[in-house]
């Protein structure tokens, strides 16, 4: 990072003095991520506290027969969610490649499509969009199977937790698309590193939250 911000220093006419030599935005985004830990901590706590407390089904991991005799299968679809988890994980790789491409633009080893920030930004945004597509599919199929946000405590806490995460992904996709738009319009280079970096940090954080959700909600009974 230091090399990059030093580069940014030369590029800007009047970069302001800062105490640490770091960029304000980066400190702010880390403080924001710290704060988000508490938000998702609360959401995940609530999900876990309410696990197994639903009065009626459908349930995440167990089948349920309603008083009317209707059978509901365990509702979580592990294969589909594993696929979407993989996609989100890959998006993080695309993101670091995008950042490296912006930071090292024009340097040897960053030629061609492999060194193109446009390619990797687009790939990251696309992977994010695919993840959202999986989530939309998951939500609609749950609703078809009889689970809405109002059905029971599981539905309430599940849709809220994963919905909040999905909203974060959606914001990230919009952020990535704005960067891509700027990249196409005028090209992103080393002096834009900080602006791509803060987006990347946000994006990876959203990925990290999913790592926790995938295990706590989907895999552990």
């Amino acid at each position: 990072m230091t090399t990059a911000s030093a580069g940014a220093h030369e590029a800007h006419e009047h970069t302001h003095y800062t105490t640490t030599g770091l960029d304000n935005k980066k400190i702010a985004i880390w403080a924001f991520i710290g704060s988000e830990c508490m938000l998702f901590g609360s959401l995940i706590s609530t999900y876990l506290v309410y696990k197994g407390k639903s009065v009626v089904g459908p349930f995440p991991h167990d089948a349920w027969t309603s008083p009317a005799g209707q059978l509901f299968k365990p509702i979580l679809n592990i294969p589909v969610t594993s696929a979407s988890t993989f996609v989100l994980l890959m998006s993080s790789l695309f993101m670091v490649l995008a950042l490296a491409a912006v930071e090292n633009k024009g340097k040897p080893g960053y030629e061609g499509w492999q060194g193109s920030s446009k390619v990797w930004l687009a790939a990251t945004a696309l992977a994010g969009a695919v993840f959202l597509g999986f989530q939309a599919y998951e939500f609609t199929s749950f609703v078809h199977e009889g689970l809405t946000i109002r059905t029971n405590l599981f539905g309430t806490s599940f849709f809220t937790l994963t919905g909040f995460h999905g909203t974060h992904v959606a914001v990230g996709v919009l952020w990535l698309l704005s960067l891509l738009f700027i990249d196409i319009k005028r090209g992103l280079g080393p002096r834009d590193t900080i602006n791509v970096d803060i987006c990347a940090l946000y994006w990876h954080f959203v990925d990290v939250v999913w790592i926790a959700i995938f295990t706590l909600v989907y895999l552990i009974k």
């Binding site: 609530t46 309410y50 407390k53 009065v55 946000i149 109002r150 029971n152 405590l153 309430t156």
Partner: peptide
């Protein structure tokens, strides 16, 4: 209409 604080639904 969610159930977070709805006692009848098991909410606490």
């Amino acid at each position: 209409g969610t159930n977070f604080y709805v006692v009848q639904a098991g909410g606490d």
